[in-house]
Structures are given as structure tokens and as C-alpha cells.
Nucleic acid binder design. Structure first.
Lengths: 209, 209
DNA sequence: TAGATTGTTAATCGATTAACAATC
DNA sequence: TAGATTGTTAATCGATTAACAATC
């Protein structure tokens, strides 16, 4: 276990390792090694070992990694061994899909509250969650201690929603709105933008003459 | 216009620039500059200028960039000035949301075909697209010339679907399935994985004692 | 023991940023 | 002209990878 700064690139790979390991476990495997992991995740063995070694000596020289124990280690690093309540704002078609998707994941981190400003949505039940009005967001964050917020509103409202979240103490945001939200530097935003992803792929198509 | 290799990081930012510029245009603006763009997108002015200058001398010294003309340049670079048909495989809740989302974007690149192997889905109409059976995918890619494919199936089938796409000539894939798909090196995959994004954010939560 | 595989250091690679001459 | 802003080079920063001693 070295003492280096841990990059966000490494952090982002941890859940990927975790999922692979769980699949291997489900398939009845008990041990693996950096080579095998790298192959299945399209990484290099060196980078797998580096990532993991930043958090402790999880492997055994000449042997590899024990799947069960590596899973618990990573869960612990990611705080996935505690219940973490998450809120989502904006339950249009995409937001709704995310709420359902979330429950399939079968983890202690879960969306447990949803907000929308559309009166047609408020009061509606989505996967056992009753949608509340956006006006209740601030109060709910404080009382229910949400630390992670998901933004799934149209681009015009995204910054407002983010501001409201941050104002109430949220420092981790997952943004699905197709717009860059600006936040203080102690707040982290992950931006999922499949419009942009799709459009960027178009670059690689053969140019028409 | 220099002669450097263009990185995928740059390519991914082009649609982001494009969207910002379109919003500015819509707001009635006609010119901008690297500083302004950088501020709104949380980048540095240097990187904005660098990105753009890789494709041509789009700016005017002492003045900045003309919004209209920059928009056309970027659209051209990204091939967004031609119709590009895209197909999606897997129209569960998420796939469906993506199909609808796509049409809001109001571009020439569009999802025009959808496939699923669930008989309940086949024949169903989603935003004017009639879902076809997965078995028809290969033939359809060839006859309709799909160059970009979207994968939205459960993790177990994702690799199979990717293989089928690639076998029929698709080289650009947008993968929403929570699993790494392995592809030849001339095929590009963008992976959107919000389960992983969410779980990685959990790392930054205060550790419970 | 011989073979395998880790953890870690040093080298490499690539992307971002600072700085500034060119010039509108 | 003076001020502003580009395009581009060189410096910096950070992440990935190769290599290998340690050791199971």
C-alpha cells in the first residue's frame, strides 16, 4: 500500500472491478489475477494492480486475488457497505427509467426520493417512490441527509436544481441534463450526456464526398 | 490549422461546444471568444482555442469567433450536416427513454430502427419506430447502412449484440449495458454506465466511523 | 524448487496549460 | 494606434505502462 494520491480515474474503475468480481463469484469462481481482470475489462494488468495496490495489499504474490475478499475490500472503499440514500430531480421518461434501473442494481446505495415540478408527476408513484414537488427538495435534503443527487431535468433548469442541491449540502451530483453545470470546486459532478456521446461518434464516420 | 493528431478527448468536446453555441445563437448572440466559452463549459481558454484550431483557423485575432460560422464548421467536422441513421437494440424502459430523447435533439443523426428479442416488444411502436425482432438486425444493418449502433440490452446479451453489429460492419457503438464489451481495435465504444458513475461517487462520501 | 504473480519504481505517453508573437 | 484575442509552441502535469525484485 503506497502513499500516492488516488486519481478519479482509479476511483471510476473500482465499481467496474467490483461488478466483474461479482459476476465471477456468481459463476462459482474463487480466485483471479490481474491478467484475467485486465483481459475482461480491456485494461492492462499493470494498471489493475496499480489501482488495487493504492488501497492495500489485497493480492498474494504468485497466487493472485481472492474474489470474495477483494469484493468486500472494494465495497468498503466505495462505502457500499452502508445504506446511502440518493435523490433524483426530474422524472420524465429518462428519470423514471433511472429510478427503475437503480433498483435492479441491488445495492445499499439507492434512490429513495424523487422530485419534479410538473403537477402531473407530483404524487405519482414510481417503483414505490412517491414523487414530491420540487419545492420540497431543500427541506428533504436536510432532513433525510441526502449526500448524492441525480439531475434529470431539462437543460434550462439544471443549474438551478444543482444550486439548490449544493445550497443544502449535497457535494456529489450525477447530471443527465445536456448542459454543463458549474459548481464550487469541492463539489463533484459526473456528467452523462449521451447526445454528446452519439454526436461525437459521428466524427468517425467516413466523410461523404 | 496545425497538423497534430486529434485526440478523442477533443472530439468529445466538439458536441459540447456545438450545443453551447446553439444556445448562444438562440439567445440572439453573434460572436463569442475562447474565454467566454471556457467559462461556461468549465474549461480553460487555451484548451478551447487548441481544440478549435486543430480543425482550421476559425477565429479572428483580436475579435473572437463568429457563432454562426463556428456552428457550421463544427457540424461539418462531426458529419452532422448529413442524415445518419442509427439503430438501437434493446427497448426496455431505458432504451425507450433514449429513443424519445433522441428525437428531441432535433438533428440529422437519428435513431430510425429498434430491435428487441422480447416478443412483447416486437411490433410495438416507439416514437414512430416499429420494433423489429433481434433476428432481423444483421440484415437490417446491411440494407439500411447503419454505421452507429446503440446497445441497451441486459448485460448477458451485450457482447453478443455487439458481435452481431460488428460482424455486419458497424464500427461505432454506444453501450448502455453495465458490462465491458470487447471489440477489435478499429471499433469504437462509448460506454455510459450510470450504475458505475453512481457507485464511484459513493467513494467521496464521508466515511462512517 | 521452479513458476507465477504481486506491489512498486521508473519510463513513457498523452493531454492540458501557460505564455507570447502575430494581428485584427 | 492601443487593446483584445487568436493560433501555436514549449512547459507542465498526470495517468498509463514496462520492468523487475520480492515472495508465495
Amino acid at each position: 500500500m503506497s502513499n500516492q494520491k488516488i486519481s478519479d480515474a482509479t476511483i471510476k474503475r473500482l465499481p467496474i472491478y467490483l461488478r466483474l468480481l461479482e459476476r465471477e463469484r456468481f459463476a462459482g469462481k474463487h480466485k483471479t489475477n490481474s491478467n484475467e481482470i485486465a483481459k475482461k475489462l480491456d485494461l492492462t494488468p499493470a494498471s489493475v494492480r496499480k489501482d488495487l495496490s493504492l488501497f492495500g495489499d489485497f493480492g498474494h504474490k504468485g497466487v493472485g486475488y481472492n474474489i470474495d475478499s477483494l469484493i468486500s475490500k472494494i465495497e468498503e472503499i466505495l462505502n457500499l457497505n452502508h445504506f446511502i440514500p440518493v435523490c433524483i430531480v426530474g422524472v420524465g421518461r429518462l428519470g423514471e427509467a433511472i429510478v427503475y434501473h437503480n433498483h435492479f442494481m441491488n445495492r445499499k446505495i439507492n434512490i429513495v426520493a424523487a422530485f419534479d415540478k410538473n403537477p402531473d408527476k407530483v404524487g405519482k408513484e414510481i417503483d414505490q417512490i412517491v414523487v414530491q414537488h420540487l419545492d420540497e427538495l431543500g427541506e428533504a435534503i436536510k432532513t433525510r441527509q441526502f449526500k448524492i443527487g441525480i439531475i434529470c431535468v431539462p437543460p434550462n433548469s439544471a443549474q438551478n436544481v444543482a444550486d439548490k442541491m449544493i445550497e443544502n449540502g449535497i457535494k456529489n451530483i450525477l447530471n443527465f441534463s445536456p448542459v454543463t453545470i458549474l459548481v464550487p470546486e469541492d463539489v463533484r459532478v459526473r456528467h452523462t450526456d449521451f447526445g454528446a456521446d452519439l454526436h461525437s461518434l459521428a466524427y468517425y464516420l467516413p466523410k461523404e464526398k
